[in-house]
């Protein structure tokens, strides 16, 4: 399936953002606003993981390290450097890109399961470092004292509604940017290295360099998901960098589907709804989530998004053959 053209993707992003703003400006529903903020954070993270795992074939078990790193780096920069929020965001992006470059150089050469496990090992290292660096990070208590949110460009992110609008904006911008990456020649090359790295090398493609670039890009967006979470809870906690975050990311993209760009967004919506809904009724919410993924994985054998897309394309093909039949009959 060919991706949307640039102008169409841009128009779609603008329309969705406009609708979201219109919707959010009229609401006073705190639960809804919280939902949008959490969704933005999770969906940016999950889509970045899909860029790496779905498009690049690099199933990272440690992608959450960049989510956690982004949260801590942003919160610490805000607390200690006294800079404005956009400056701290740019700093977090650069910081996570640097970390990803170091981790990536080691990991992208590794194949399949080794890649997965070494990324997991790095995640544990980052998590352990956060716990150990008490004076800086607050150790297992987390980074407390709140994240300062000085107003910028007339935006006050201490205000829940404005933070919600800002999150929606970041979500759309990040999705648009990642969509652009996967629709570029680089995106096609990344899929080539996933399908057949040997053949890609025979076409003159520097496979490891392509994989490293994808690793860094995915890490940068994961860190944006993390810093949004830090803004939301006004702090950062070791859990943000724990391996379960990576696991949740994989859960989300499996749920939503890995072959469509928006699958992880759909997965994030489902995941948050499930979480909220299930935990209202039972404390065994792991049991419920596990059952859902079993039903999706064994029942549909693909993510919900993949299922919908396949169903739609099967239907339009059926329509097309129906039409040719009727025109043949008519002539």
């Amino acid at each position: 399936m060919r991706a949307l053209s640039f102008s169409r993707a841009l128009a779609l992003a603008a329309i969705v953002l406009g609708l979201l703003f219109a919707l959010l400006s009229t609401t006073a529903n705190h639960a809804l606003m919280d939902f949008v903020i959490r969704l933005a954070s999770l969906a940016i993270f999950a889509t970045s993981l899909n860029l790496l795992a779905g498009y690049g074939g690099m199933v990272s078990f440690g992608h959450g390290m960049f989510y956690g790193f982004g949260a801590y780096f942003f919160a610490l920069t805000m607390q200690r450097a006294g800079v404005s929020i956009p400056v701290a965001i740019v700093a977090s992006i650069l910081g996570s890109a640097l970390l990803a470059a170091i981790v990536g150089v080691i990991c992208v050469r590794l194949k399949e399961i080794y890649f997965s496990f070494v990324t997991l090992a790095f995640q544990m290292l980052i998590h352990a470092t956060i716990l150990a660096a008490m004076p800086l990070t607050g150790g297992d208590q987390g980074l407390r004292g709140g994240v300062p949110r000085p107003p910028f460009l007339g935006l006050n992110l201490s205000n829940q509604k404005q933070l919600c609008m800002f999150s929606a904006f970041l979500l759309i911008v990040c999705l648009f940017a990642m969509h652009h990456v996967v629709s570029s020649p680089f995106g096609a090359t990344l899929r080539m290295t996933r399908d057949n790295a040997d053949r890609a090398a025979y076409l003159g493609i520097a496979v490891d360099r392509v994989r490293l670039k994808a690793f860094i890009i995915a890490a940068v967006f994961a860190s944006i998901g993390g810093l949004l979470q830090a803004l939301f809870v006004s702090g950062a906690y070791p859990d943000f960098a724990y391996w379960t975050v990576s696991g949740e990311g994989i859960f989300v993209i499996m749920l939503g589907g890995t072959t469509t760009f928006l699958g992880p967004l759909l997965g994030s919506v489902l995941m948050l709804l499930l979480n909220d809904f299930v935990s209202r009724f039972t404390e065994y919410h792991g049991l419920a989530l596990g059952s859902v993924i079993l039903v999706v994985a064994l029942g549909l054998r693909k993510g919900v998004g993949d299922f919908v897309v396949d169903w739609l394309s099967a239907r339009s093909e059926a329509d097309a053959s129906e039409r040719t039949k009727t025109t043949e009959a008519a002539s």
């Binding site: 991706a3 053209s5 640039f6 652009h180 990456v181 629709s183 570029s184 020649p185 680089f186 995106g187 096609a188 090359t189 080539m192 890609a200 076409l203 003159g204 493609i205 360099r209 392509v210 670039k213």
Partner: peptide
């Protein structure tokens, strides 16, 4: 995609494939 690599454009991110 093979032509793109021959054109030395396989790592371009700003344009479209």
């Amino acid at each position: 995609a093979a032509v793109t690599s021959g054109l030395d454009q396989s790592e371009r991110m700003l344009s479209r494939f």
